[in-house]
Amino acid sequence: MSEETAGILDGAVPPARNPHLYGHRSAEDFLARSYRSGKGHHAILIEGPEGIGKATLAFRFANHVLTHPDPEAAPDHLSDPDPNSPVSRQIASGASHNLLHLTRPVDEKTGKAKTAITVDEVRRAGHFFSQTSGTGNWRIVIIDPADDLNRNAANAILKILEEPPRRALFIVLSHAPGKLLPTIRSRCQSLKLSPLSDEDLSKALAGLGMPLEGGRTEEIVLSMGKGSVAQALKLLNYGGTEIIAAFNEVIAADGPTARKAMHRLADVLSGKESDVIFGFFLEHLSDYLVARAREAAFAGDLPAADRQARLVSDIAEKITVAQAYNLDRKQTILSILEAARR
């Protein structure tokens, strides 16, 4: 597994190879016009929820810049990449000498992506710029996502952003920009993307060969997909709808029935190759608890709202500790479920 395909969900197309983007025409037009003006910022921070097309937009814009290296001669809009052009082929294969994609590296022992983008990865950017400094070409670095930079890596990126090389462009992606160093945010031009509309989400899924054909499945995907292709794929291809149903059963049941339901759900979430669905479950659980806290607050029960809000933090801490010390996942899940039922 390469870094370009690590973390790609079943049914998805790696952003570097994705020829289509849905729902972000205004953002595309902004980037194209900004580049054509010759006054575009050297660092663009593309913000928005995970799975709505930020990385695909980043690669589309990189393709646009490398295809039209003279800003004044560039079109005022982004087009679908031409799969037969040398630039598109090089980007799709990860072989472009003018584009560097910084993401979490793959652990050679496990074949999985590591938990953070390290300073060693950022040093690749320094090497990249030194190798290409004499070509006169645009040099583009996509940081995907910057949320995964550890502290040392973030500081190293900051130094490059403070004194960017000539004809260098940084495209910084973030699912949660509030977690970024304020100094990184301040050196980037922010471009916020919104979740996809139901229509655009349906088009994106159809483009992946998974058209929504009405019925209960479409209703669930559109209501719980949060305008995110990634979220929809987890619902469709990873058993997300079944996980939600099982969690609802845990919450609604009592006594021995609840205990059995908890163990069934914990067995699924702690099984082999369950990382994606486990992450999906944690996100759903957080949403559930936040909704309960909000309901309690609106009802005027501030102590209950405070308990639910604290529970979100407590569960996040449990997960952090369990992962840091490689604790038994099933027991951790059972503990979390027990806390959520209170």
Rank of each mutant, 00 (worst) to 15 (best):
N237K: 14
Y238R: 10
G209E: 13
L222G: 15
I243E: 13
G209C: 13
Q231K: 12
E218Y: 14
A232H: 14
I243H: 00
M210Y: 06
R216M: 15
Q231N: 05
E218N: 14
A232F: 08
G225F: 07
Y238F: 07
A206I: 00
E218M: 07
L212M: 02
S202V: 03
A246E: 10
E219V: 00
A206N: 14
R216K: 08
I220K: 03
T217C: 04
Y238K: 07
L222H: 05
L208G: 07
G227D: 00
I220C: 03
E249N: 09
E242C: 03
L212G: 08
Y238D: 11
G215W: 06
M224I: 02
L222I: 13
V221Y: 15
G215Y: 06
T217D: 04
G214R: 12
A232Y: 05
A245K: 01
M224A: 12
F247M: 11
P211F: 04
G209A: 11
E213C: 09
T217N: 03
A245D: 12
G225W: 06
N237C: 10
A246G: 12
L208T: 10
E219I: 04
A230Q: 03
A204Y: 12
A232L: 12
I244N: 05
L222F: 08
R216S: 08
E219Q: 01
T217F: 02
S202W: 05
G207C: 14
S223I: 07
S202A: 11
G227T: 08
K203L: 14
G209S: 10
G227C: 15
E219C: 12
K234M: 10
S228K: 01
A230W: 04
P211D: 15
E242W: 02
L235V: 12
A232C: 02
V229F: 12
K203E: 13
S228V: 02
A230E: 10
G214A: 10
L235P: 04
V229E: 04
S228E: 12
A246Y: 07
M224N: 02
L222K: 01
A204D: 09
A204S: 06
G207H: 13
G227M: 03
A230H: 11
K234T: 00
G207L: 02
I243R: 07
E218F: 06
L235N: 02
L208N: 04
S223R: 13
E242K: 06
S223D: 10
L212F: 11
M224V: 09
G225M: 05
V221A: 09
E218G: 07
G240M: 13
L212W: 03
E249S: 08
I243P: 03
G207K: 11
M224W: 02
K203F: 09
V229C: 09
E213R: 01
G240W: 02
G215T: 03
I220W: 14
V229H: 04
L235Y: 06
R216E: 12
G239Y: 03
L233F: 04
L212E: 06
L208F: 01
I244R: 14
G225E: 13
G240S: 00
A206D: 11
A245C: 05
L236C: 08
L235G: 07
T217V: 13
K234G: 07
N248A: 05
R216W: 01
V221M: 14
M224S: 09
A230P: 06
E213A: 07
G214M: 03
M210D: 06
T241P: 11
N237T: 09
G239P: 01
L235W: 09
N237Y: 08
